[in-house]
Amino acid sequence: MTEMAWHIFIPDSLLEETSDPKIKTYKVGQIGRAAAIFGVEHIWIYKAGGREGKFIKLVLEYMETPQYLRKTLIPLTKELKYAGILPPLRTPHHKLKREPKVGEIREGVIIKKGKRLYADIGLDELALVEGSGEGRMTFEIISVIPLKVAPTKPREYWGYRVHLTRMSLAKTLKKAKLNLAIATSRMGEDVRKVNLPPLEGEVGFVFGSPRKGIMEILRDFNEDYPFDLILNTIPNQKTKTVRTEEAVLVTLAIFNVIRRD
């Protein structure tokens, strides 16, 4: 089976219906939490007339960064005033502090001391790095006494990457190079009545804003895009509107049932 990666596309106008910074932080937190639950690997923030793309990206990246690296990589700013209300992701790369074990994979950040490289991997002591690199990296513990690590690649779900494109939706979708692009819309086909194609390769789920659907956003930029599917993933909804963060959770839950990777 072809390896698969999930992408979600959210507008920079996600937060246009509220001016409360605490609620804004909470709404973005719901997106990050849903992405982590269902193993989304890429979150794309596309241009839709909003002004808070940078804030959305900051909060999502703060959530995705292991707690022990946040102080180094993402210093607290006024934008993160309400970061304490964000739900923890508890994904495999958010490790707790414990006795190190050979073979364990942990996220870390490179620290240079003279000509030697060390890594902060969230333990009581820094680990000597065998190899090269800089910034945030993924490491495998190769020795406990002394504590040594080597750069490696994750072997399980390891969080998501956030892309703030500052480009329109159609251009952002083209940049993502998807194998399957699925738009969500109240006007779309009932997801229960559609013969869904195999979920393989790079699969993207696209969401509109609180005030505008995907097609309206495309029209605002005089664009079109050849979606593979336009689906109503909440048929018979009983509320007048469905919030973007709710649509993300529902849509990913539906497709999680049929994924086979």
Score class of each variant (00 low, 15 high):
1 M>V: 04
2 T>I: 13
3 E>V: 13
6 W>I: 14
7 H>M: 03
8 I>V: 11
8 I>R: 05
10 I>H: 01
12 D>V: 13
14 L>K: 02
14 L>E: 09
16 E>G: 02
17 E>N: 15
18 T>C: 02
20 D>K: 11
20 D>Y: 06
20 D>S: 14
20 D>Q: 11
22 K>L: 11
22 K>A: 04
24 K>A: 09
25 T>H: 05
27 K>G: 03
27 K>I: 14
28 V>C: 12
30 Q>P: 00
31 I>R: 10
32 G>L: 10
33 R>V: 08
34 A>L: 12
34 A>T: 13
35 A>K: 06
36 A>H: 09
38 F>N: 11
41 E>S: 14
43 I>Q: 11
45 I>V: 13
49 G>K: 15
49 G>F: 12
49 G>R: 06
52 E>Q: 14
52 E>I: 07
53 G>T: 12
54 K>Y: 08
55 F>P: 08
59 V>Y: 04
60 L>Q: 05
60 L>G: 09
61 E>S: 12
62 Y>T: 13
64 E>C: 03
66 P>G: 08
66 P>I: 13
67 Q>I: 04
68 Y>D: 02
77 T>R: 04
78 K>I: 03
80 L>Y: 09
81 K>Q: 09
82 Y>E: 13
86 L>N: 06
87 P>R: 14
88 P>L: 10
90 R>S: 07
92 P>C: 09
93 H>F: 14
93 H>V: 07
94 H>G: 07
95 K>N: 04
96 L>V: 14
99 E>V: 11
101 K>H: 15
108 G>R: 13
109 V>L: 08
111 I>W: 04
117 L>G: 12
123 L>Y: 08
127 A>F: 07
131 G>D: 06
136 R>A: 15
136 R>Y: 10
138 T>E: 13
139 F>I: 01
139 F>V: 02
139 F>W: 01
139 F>D: 08
142 I>V: 15
142 I>F: 09
143 S>K: 09
145 I>K: 12
145 I>V: 04
146 P>F: 10
148 K>F: 07
149 V>D: 06
150 A>R: 15
151 P>E: 06
152 T>K: 07
154 P>Y: 02
157 Y>A: 12
163 H>V: 11
163 H>G: 00
163 H>F: 15
164 L>W: 07
166 R>G: 02
166 R>D: 14
170 A>S: 14
173 L>D: 03
176 A>M: 05
177 K>E: 15
177 K>N: 15
179 N>L: 07
180 L>P: 06
180 L>S: 05
181 A>T: 15
186 R>S: 09
187 M>W: 01
189 E>C: 00
190 D>H: 05
192 R>P: 01
193 K>T: 00
195 N>P: 02
196 L>M: 15
198 P>F: 12
201 G>I: 08
201 G>C: 10
205 F>R: 02
205 F>I: 00
206 V>Q: 10
208 G>P: 03
214 I>C: 10
215 M>T: 05
216 E>H: 06
218 L>R: 05
219 R>Y: 06
222 N>Q: 08
230 I>F: 03
230 I>K: 07
232 N>F: 01
233 T>Q: 01
234 I>D: 01
237 Q>M: 08
240 K>H: 08
241 T>L: 07
242 V>G: 03
244 T>G: 03
246 E>R: 05
247 A>Q: 00
250 V>F: 00
251 T>D: 00
252 L>T: 02
257 V>S: 00
259 R>T: 12
260 R>H: 10
